[in-house]
Structure formats: C-alpha cells, structure tokens
C-alpha cells in the first residue's frame, strides 16, 4: 500500500464518521446516508484499485481514470453549488420571516395593535416537509 492510499482512506473514514453521525432518522436523510455510504465505498475501492477506475473510464469512452474522476468531480461540484445556493435562499427566507416578525411585533407594541397581530405562521406559509429534516445535511 502506498502512502497516498493511507492518507486517502483515512480521509474517507473521517468523512464517514462525521457524515453518518447525525441522529436524525427521517426518510430523506436515511436515503441521503445510504447514497453517501455507497459513495464512500466506491471511493475506497477506487483508492485501493486504481486500475478499476481506468477500466471503467475506458468502458464509458473516457481516456484515463483520472479524467473520469475529474469529470465526476466537476459535476458533483456543480450540483453542490446549486444545492448550496438554493439552501442559502431558504435560509434567507427563514431569516427574513423572523426579522419581519420582530419588526411587526415591535411596531404593534408601539401603536397598541398587539391584539391585531396574526399568528406567526399562516397555513400556506408553513415550511414544506422537505424543509423540516435539514438537520443531517
């Protein structure tokens, strides 16, 4: 085993521990974890048997294994960026809802309208299901 393989496998192990440690048990997260675990297994195999990556690359019509890894990485990064952007928007929306509530409560208090304040969340404003189990990711 060459030195770089040791480092890579140590890194993958650390990722596995950190990534799978969360306690949330919702359906979406379970699937995410399964995918993540599968990815880690593939990575370990690729680190231990680089020749397999080469063979896979040839099989799909890419010259070298390194190229295949690069392409996959580029795509994964693209997905990551879009995902983070959308998540940032969601987070901003939540922040704005909170700040708006503070502004309204403060103003209602100033003008004696506290009794007119609506419930903080109206039915159509409640976050969708997918937003409720973000804890693991």
């Amino acid at each position: 085993m060459i030195f770089v393989q040791l480092i890579l496998i140590a890194a993958v192990t650390a990722m596995a521990v950190l990534g799978l440690r969360s306690r949330a048990t919702h359906g979406v997260n379970a699937w995410k974890k399964l995918l993540f675990a599968a990815l880690l297994v593939v990575v370990v195999i690729a680190v231990l048997f680089p020749a397999m990556v080469n063979r896979t690359a040839n099989w799909v019509g890419v010259g070298r294994g390194t190229d295949l890894v690069l392409y996959v990485l580029a795509m994964a990064f693209g997905f990551y960026v879009v995902n983070e952007y959308l998540r940032g928007q969601d987070a901003r929306e939540e922040l704005h809802r909170l700040a708006r509530r503070i502004a309204l409560v403060e103003a209602a208090d100033r003008y004696g309208l506290v009794n007119a304040l609506p419930a903080p969340l109206e039915r159509s404003e409640q976050p969708a299901d997918e937003h409720e189990d973000r804890t693991a990711s």
């Binding site: 704005h96 700040a99 502004a103 403060e106 103003a107 100033r110």
Partner: peptide, 14 residues
Amino acid sequence: AYLVDHPINMGQGA
C-alpha cells in the same frame, strides 16, 4: 407616519 423597523436590511420586496 407609522414606523415599522426592520432589524436588518432585507431589501425592498421584503
């Protein structure tokens, strides 16, 4: 006027 203070800057739409 009635004043409502946003605690942070959130943009015109907000």
